[in-house]
């Protein structure tokens, strides 16, 4: 069964602009925040709370251009797979929120096949935040320079270097950030991502 994407949670198409994302977010909030009569008859208080949390999470991701771009990359990879399997139903399936959360962060796709790094370089066998930092410093680059090169927010890059996985919006996003980080460092993104995520402790 298909699971809900952030776009489906907000009830928008994936190509809409930020204004529509915001309008859809306000509408979705009004549905689940306890002000709307219809949800009383259909959802329990727990279900409403869980949906509200999902709506907030979806908006936090889609209202941030960098995070949204990485999420879109992930969805595109997912889309290719789901077409091949022809498993998507014609309409969004009603998925209980507790199932949605787990399913929304699936095993991350292998994006490296689509675009190999231009100049792969050696990546240490063990990669953690300190190794990332060491690689960056060996190339005389600051966090802000990596942010400018990768278009990933410096606070996320800092979180990766500090191994503060809970400060990142999720494993799938971390994978996207790491790919960009690897490309900025001109090292193999496949190896860097795989080795870093071996020690992943976040959600």
């Amino acid at each position: 069964m298909k699971n809900k994407t952030y776009y489906e949670i907000l009830g928008v198409a994936s190509h809409v602009g930020s204004g529509q994302i915001q309008a859809a977010y306000r509408f979705a909030r009004s549905l689940y925040s306890g002000e709307a009569t219809p949800t009383y008859g259909l959802l329990t208080a727990d279900e409403r709370d869980q949906m509200l949390a999902l709506v907030e999470e979806a908006y936090a991701a889609l209202s941030n251009p960098n995070v949204r771009r990485d999420y879109d990359i992930h969805l595109a990879a997912q889309g290719v797979r789901s077409h091949a399997q022809e498993s998507a139903p014609p309409h969004p399936e009603p998925v209980p929120p507790e199932r949605t959360r787990a399913a929304r962060v699936p095993p991350a796709p292998d994006l490296s096949a689509a675009e190999p790094p231009s100049e792969p370089a050696r990546v240490p066998e063990q990669v953690n935040g300190s190794v990332l930092k060491a690689l960056r410093e060996s190339r005389h680059l600051t966090i802000d320079q990596i942010a400018a090169l990768s278009k990933v927010g410096s606070r996320f890059l800092k979180a990766l270097e500090d191994d503060r996985h809970d400060a990142l919006p999720g494993r799938v996003f971390a994978r996207g950030f790491l790919i960009e980080y690897a490309r900025a460092l001109r090292v193999s993104d496949t190896e860097l991502v795989e080795r870093y995520l071996k020690h992943w402790t976040g959600k």
Partner: peptide, 20 residues
């Protein structure tokens, strides 16, 4: 609030009942 009821209900039915 009543004027918003219809659009909200249709959205909840679509999203949680799976009917267009």
């Amino acid at each position: 609030a009543d004027r918003k009821f219809g659009a909200q209900t249709a959205a909840v039915v679509r999203r949680h009942f799976g009917l267009p």
